[in-house]
Amino acid sequence: MDATDEKIIAELTRNGRISHSELAGKVLLSRNAVRQRIERLERQGHIAGYTIVRAGGDTGDVVSALVLVYRQDRMRGGDVLAALKRIPEVVVCEILSGDFDIMVRLEAASLERVRSIWEEIAKMPGVRDTVTALTLSRVVNRPRGEQGLAAAE
């Protein structure tokens, strides 16, 4: 990925419905070049999906859960990461230091779907164990880039 790819991803993060033509103007490329880059970013997994964000930050009836994953082999667990990237409800996947290997945040339409995803993760080759916690309420939810605003005020 280069700086132009980063700009494309940043613009798509701000507005996932932006036209290729408008995006091309913002990143100083042709419409066709933007389309080709987006397709490549999708193939390479840098863009794993598109989502809807409701006005006012309302998440509706979304069930959120945190799944902590222990892998059998931390150094050779790339298959687990690749499989997690293919699950659309995975909104965050981070490799951790310490006791747990991977932290996965799920946002699903139902508790049943969270359970189904948990079962899928637990059965993955290379996963030794999991610990799952459901989100009861969200106290802080800062969009990226707003972390320093409170300190500046």
Score class of each variant (00 low, 15 high):
3 A>T: 06
5 D>V: 12
7 K>D: 10
7 K>E: 12
8 I>V: 13
9 I>M: 14
9 I>C: 06
10 A>K: 08
12 L>N: 07
12 L>W: 05
13 T>E: 10
14 R>I: 03
15 N>P: 02
16 G>P: 12
16 G>W: 04
17 R>W: 02
18 I>N: 00
19 S>A: 04
24 A>D: 08
26 K>W: 04
27 V>G: 04
29 L>S: 01
30 S>G: 15
30 S>Y: 07
31 R>A: 07
31 R>P: 03
34 V>E: 04
35 R>A: 15
36 Q>M: 14
36 Q>S: 13
37 R>Y: 10
37 R>K: 15
38 I>R: 05
41 L>F: 11
41 L>W: 11
42 E>R: 13
42 E>Y: 06
44 Q>P: 02
45 G>D: 03
45 G>L: 02
46 H>F: 15
47 I>G: 01
47 I>N: 02
53 V>D: 04
61 D>T: 15
61 D>R: 15
62 V>T: 13
64 S>N: 11
65 A>N: 12
65 A>L: 10
66 L>E: 12
66 L>D: 12
66 L>I: 15
68 L>G: 06
69 V>E: 09
69 V>P: 11
70 Y>H: 11
71 R>V: 13
71 R>G: 05
73 D>Q: 12
73 D>L: 06
74 R>N: 01
74 R>C: 00
74 R>M: 03
76 R>V: 00
77 G>W: 00
78 G>V: 00
79 D>W: 06
79 D>T: 09
80 V>M: 12
83 A>L: 09
85 K>L: 10
86 R>D: 11
87 I>P: 07
89 E>V: 04
89 E>D: 13
92 V>Q: 12
95 I>K: 10
96 L>M: 12
97 S>Q: 08
97 S>I: 03
